[in-house]
Design a protein around this nucleic acid. Structure first.
Lengths: 336, 336
DNA sequence: GCTATACATGAAAGCGCTTACATCATAGTA
DNA sequence: TACTATGATGTAAGCGCTTTCATGTATAGC
């Protein structure tokens, strides 16, 4: 690969001038500029971004930590972030944190050591204190799907509690009064919030939450299946199942079918997230929309604005969920 | 962030010695080693990998180009690659090529400029010649899902033709004789190969391929729906649809249901890829397994072996597909 | 015609590291 | 004892860039 030195020799100018032409930050005589550009073209020169990064202490790259690389949810998130940055000539470096404290910290350290100009973190296992410390160390980052008070202006969140509320209210409005709830792991902030919203809706309709109708899953399909089976067998009066995400809802669908329940005539099922497969299910899943793409893009915007001083559209940090009506929720069957 | 210089000062040794302790490539007296390690610990020193990369011309990072970041297929691929490399202490930098020649080339250039030690490419738009040139320029890379003869030893491929053959044979063995085919874009190598396999199976059973029963989609759901509708309306005798991927098969499922076809009694549908949502569909999709995770891991192994000289398990470059029987294929209905 | 000013360019330091080479003890050998 | 081999450590160059500062040249003002 050609270096800037070879370009400068061919163009008959100094290194500095080549750098100036390429970075467009200092005026250069048009004539010289063209000479340099011609040399660049001729040699097929491409700046070594590692050297640039070392010299300038900027890298034009943004680090992203997500729990998993697969799964519909994070794919959409990554894709939208990458798109937005690509338009701005920035690049992304991605690491998986696997919801594990050590791996999350490792990933963050790695991205820092790579001179990332900023980080986008979707982390679950590290503590709030750790994140606050990170801020104090002047690390630039934004948090997705997590709210930490001292970091309020760099958190892009979904109003999870309201989402949980809407999901359950939707079910209640269909006349259901015996409602099972399949939760995500309660140590995760979003799972906790969604459940709180569920309780709020229940209370609003004068219903008591019951131990019997609660199952804590792990956000994966299998646990939705198990949860549905346990709930339905323990309490046959249940006519609706609210699930804290679509994957568990898909599992619940399977279990319900295997138990011979007619959907949605006998049993209604509600999901959460509106991931891309949720309309492949049968019946198509009624769910709560998680505007993940928009949130990813917003995280990118925030960084473009704060770190790169670019002009961007208005910043929004809290997103609102809404119910997506499809076919898995129906009116409550008449009480026998 | 502390630098190696501060560590060396604190430990009372030279820069070189610190570097040697950290890189474990030159013997250092145990006593000195401990002094250095203590200093590292005390300062919370973390090497700046950008500087390391510039100085050593190695980066311990591997670049990956895939068409999209979302979608079940690439998520799985990325995830398995990242996992394998993380175990080996390497890191991945990911770029999306969007099946566009310019973007693919940009992505490759970017990854090279980032000093990646090697690349894993799942590219579709750049020419074979371009890839051969890349090899001649001594760029280290492996190709996924694409075979280019001069690069035979760095191509990790699925036997797509055999997959296409198996899919159609499976349908034929269920007695179907009027079979529609919904293809991917024929300029894509895999789409072409899968179709060739389809033809081969047809021929083996003494059937002629027919223009009437072929539809070229774009691998996305919508085109599967459109394709199914067109095929079934043009030729009502069709009793089975072979789709070149699961997304289009999901679309076909929708169309079939809307046309009032009972599945699989009236109509059988076959997918390809076995992506993670294919068992969420109703009926669950019968499909051909694409061992994408295994192939990603193999690409990683190949690089660990060739680029980093690590000992790894045996290398396999061609993977074989196999039919996954689920519920969307049934026996052909008796001819009326 | 001479100085003040702006503008274009070059020289060189330095970003944080690795590594070839030089240096210096120390131990082994005759 | 003098000499060489050996192993540990230091010195300094250099990776490919950016950027500050100095220099030079053309223009304007008097």
């Amino acid at each position: 690969m050609a270096t800037i030195y070879e370009v400068s020799k061919l163009a008959g100018v100094s290194l500095a001038t080549v750098s100036r032409v390429l970075n467009k930050n200092t005026p250069v005589r048009e004539e010289t500029r063209l000479k340099v550009l011609a040399a660049v073209e001729k040699l097929g020169y491409q700046p070594n971004s590692v050297a640039q990064s070392l010299a300038s202490n900027r890298s034009n790259s943004i680090g992203i930590v997500v729990p998993e690389l697969n799964g519909p949810f994070f794919g959409t998130l990554l894709s939208d972030i990458e798109n937005r940055f690509r338009q701005a000539g920035k690049h992304v470096i991605i690491a998986a944190g696997h919801s594990d404290e050590k791996l999350e910290k490792d990933s963050i350290a790695f991205l820092q050591s790579r001179n990332c100009d900023a980080l986008i973190l979707h982390v679950e296992a590290v503590s709030d204190d750790y994140l606050v410390e990170l801020m104090q160390k002047k690390v630039r980052f934004v948090l997705i799907n997590r709210f930490v008070a001292p970091l309020y202006d760099r958190c892009i969140t979904l109003n999870n509690q309201h989402g949980g509320y809407l999901a359950t209210r939707h079910i209640l409005e269909h006349g259901h009064r015996h409602i099972g709830y399949i939760s995500g792991p309660m140590w995760k902030h979003d799972a906790d919030q969604r459940y709180k919203g569920h309780i709020r809706a229940l209370t609003e309709f004068g219903l008591e939450p019951s131990e019997q109708r609660f199952y804590e899953g792990d956000y994966h399909e299998k646990s939705g299946e198990t949860g549905a089976r346990i709930l339905l067998e323990n309490d046959p009066s249940i006519t609706a199942l609210v699930c804290a995400n679509d994957e568990m809802a898909a599992g619940a669908l399977t279990a319900a079918r295997e138990l011979g329940r007619e959907l949605p005539a006998d049993l209604s099922i509600m999901g959460f997230d509106n991931v891309n497969f949720s309309h492949y299910t049968h019946p198509k899943l009624t769910t709560v929309n998680y505007p993940v793409g928009g949130m990813g893009e917003m995280a990118a915007q925030l960084i473009l604005k704060r770190v790169y001083d670019q002009k961007v559209d208005a910043i929004q940090t809290v997103f609102e969920p809404r119910v997506i009506e499809r076919c898995s929720v129906g009116p409550a069957p008449d009480e026998a």
